[in-house]
Simulated assay, not measured.
Amino acid sequence: MTGLIARGMGPAFDGLPAPLRALHGAGGLWRGTVTVETGRAVARRLALAIGLPSEAGTVPFSLEIQPDGTGEVWTRRFGPHVFRSYLGPGPDGTVLERIGALRVRMRPEPVPGGLHLRIVGAGLGAVIAPAWLAGRGGGMETVEGDGVRFDVSGRAPGLGRVIRYHGTLAPA
C-alpha cells in the first residue's frame, strides 16, 4: 500500500530522498531521540489536554505509522508518554490530522533535501479555519545518514508555542 503522504504529493514524492520515501511509503516503526520544548503554563495545559507531552526534555522516541483504511494511525512515544493521531486524506492533496476534536490540515511540500508539512488550516470538528487564523506550525523533515531529522511545532493564537519537538529517527 502506498502511504498517505505519497498519495497526497503524487509524482513529487518520488523526488524525495530515500529515507523520507521509506518513512512515508508504507508505514512501519522508526526509533530515535527527541527533544521536547513546551510553552508557557496555559499552553502546556493545552498540550496535555490534547495528549501531547507537557514536560520539556530529551527522551527516547519512536514513531509507528500503521495504514488504517484510507489513512494512517501515527503512534508517537516520547519516553513513556504515548500520543496517537489519525491522518487521513484532505482536499487538493492535503492531509488532515485528527487529534481528538482538533483537526489540522497540512500540505506536504518537497523542499531542497527534505519535506515540509505546512499547516494550511486548523479547527475543531468539521470547522477548519485558515492557517492565518488558526495558528502556526508544521513539520520539517530532512535526511541524516540513513535516517530522518525532524522538527515539529505548533503555536496557538494568543498562547504562542504549544509544543516543539525535534530529533532523529531511523528504521527500527
Rank of each mutant, 00 (worst) to 15 (best):
G3Y: 01
L4R: 01
R7C: 06
R7K: 12
G10R: 05
G10M: 09
F13I: 08
P17E: 08
P17L: 08
P19A: 07
P19E: 12
P19D: 08
L20M: 11
L23E: 02
H24V: 11
G25K: 01
G27E: 07
L29E: 09
R31M: 07
T33Y: 08
T33S: 12
V36K: 00
T38A: 10
T38Q: 00
R40V: 15
A41S: 12
V42S: 08
R44L: 09
R45F: 09
L46G: 04
A49W: 14
G51K: 00
G51C: 07
L52S: 02
A56F: 11
A56M: 11
G57D: 14
F61H: 04
L63M: 15
G69F: 08
T70A: 10
G71K: 01
V73W: 03
V73Q: 00
R76W: 10
R76Q: 13
R77A: 07
G79R: 03
S85N: 13
G88Y: 07
G88A: 11
P89D: 11
P89S: 09
P89H: 11
G90L: 03
P91K: 15
A101Y: 08
L102H: 15
L102S: 13
R103C: 07
R105Y: 09
R107H: 14
P108S: 10
E109K: 07
V111F: 10
V111Q: 15
L115K: 01
H116L: 15
L117M: 15
I119K: 00
A122P: 09
I128W: 08
A129G: 02
A129C: 07
P130E: 14
W132L: 06
L133D: 13
A134I: 01
G135I: 01
G137P: 14
G138A: 06
E141H: 12
T142R: 12
G145S: 11
D146R: 13
D146E: 15
D146C: 08
G147F: 03
G154M: 14
G154V: 12
G154R: 05
G158A: 04
R161A: 02
V162R: 00
Y165R: 00
H166Y: 15
T168Q: 05
A172D: 14
